[in-house]
Simulated assay, not measured.
Amino acid sequence: MEWKSLLGGTALALVAAQAGWADGEACGKVRIADGGWTDIAFTNATAELLLGALGYESEQTLLGLDVTYVSLQNDQIDVFQGNWRPVQDEQYKSYFDNKHVEVLGTNLAGAKYTLAVPDYVAAAGVTSFGDLAAHAAEFDRRIYGIEPGTNQMLIDMIAADRHGLGDWKVVESSEAGMLAQVARAVEKKEWIVFLGWAPHPMNVNYDITYLSGGDIEFGPDLGSATVWTLSRPGYAAECPNAAKLFANLTYDIDFENHGMQRIMGDGESPPDAARAMIAAEPARLDKWLDGVTTLAGEPALPAVRAALGL
């Protein structure tokens, strides 16, 4: 896949934003995909908070991953902050090859995404994908996943009988449903294998071990990942200022872990968590708003600081 060619048109459009070209009225409402995950709930809330301060309206729509890509292609959604790579690369390769989506930039580096078990299960000898089949009875031949459309790599793994798991089942529910199952298992010291990832408060709330050996399914280094921000085709050319904001919106593991903990552990709403994290680290605004204006074309940083009371 030629990422340079995908980025070329976007880069040119972002030059327009840096030159101070305000977006037109048609760009005033930004349609954002919500994948139903707490990390994207937090990053989307952060984006919405900034967009509102800049004079934009925004609308989030809860969509499965498959529908998200179709919606970007069909001009029903403008932006998606949840393109995890390499785990989504093969399944959605055609969207990039056919230019049905565009890349705005990387929003998170150092993430990971693969199967995990509680530490007491790892201590009993399960530290890799290859160890699972020997303990099928303890796991009840079940792998706990999240939303349908997000677990395809596991479904394909079972269909191909990789790692001897051909008679296993992926339990699809939601992030919250999966974590509730993990919490019940950990409380009773029962065996469970589930999708784990960072950033996420699960890494703080539970003692877990990520399984090695899942390179085919999730990529090397325990599913080491970067998260990219995508847009519908032509968005950066049509709305360069909003696209520039999303290109600037980069996070880190620690920032997202704490923001997600506010939502999942402290019960804050995503907007309240985003506001609290920005208030705690206001220096991030300098980078996020570099080369960005309000919808009306005024300087962004003072407008956002005033709107957020900073």
Rank of each mutant, 00 (worst) to 15 (best):
Ile155Glu: 12
Trp191Lys: 10
Pro270Gln: 06
Lys244Ile: 02
Asp207Ala: 15
Asp254Lys: 15
Asn151Glu: 05
Phe246Val: 01
Val186Gln: 07
Gly177Gln: 01
Glu281Leu: 13
Ala180Asn: 11
Leu179Cys: 12
Ile208Gln: 10
Lys244Asp: 01
Gly265Leu: 10
Leu249Tyr: 11
Met264Gln: 12
Glu281His: 14
Ile192Tyr: 01
Ala176Ser: 15
Tyr210His: 10
Glu187Gly: 12
Ile216Leu: 11
Asp266Gly: 10
Ala276His: 13
Val182Lys: 07
Leu165His: 08
Leu245Ser: 00
Gly166Met: 06
Val171Phe: 02
Ala274Phe: 03
Val170Thr: 00
Ala237Asn: 09
Asp161Ile: 04
Trp197Arg: 14
Pro271Gly: 05
Val186Arg: 03
Gly166Ser: 12
Met202Asn: 13
Tyr251Gly: 02
Thr150Ile: 08
Tyr206Met: 11
Asp167Pro: 01
Asp272Trp: 05
Asn203Val: 04
Ala274Gln: 04
Asp215Thr: 10
Asn257Cys: 09
Asn241Thr: 04
Gln152Tyr: 03
Leu165Ala: 03
Lys189Trp: 07
Gly259Thr: 00
Tyr235Met: 13
Leu179Ile: 13
Asp254Trp: 12
Ala273Ile: 06
Ala225Leu: 11
Val171Leu: 05
Leu222Ser: 03
Trp168Pro: 01
Tyr251Met: 08
Asn241Leu: 00
Gly164Trp: 05
Pro270His: 06
Tyr251Leu: 01
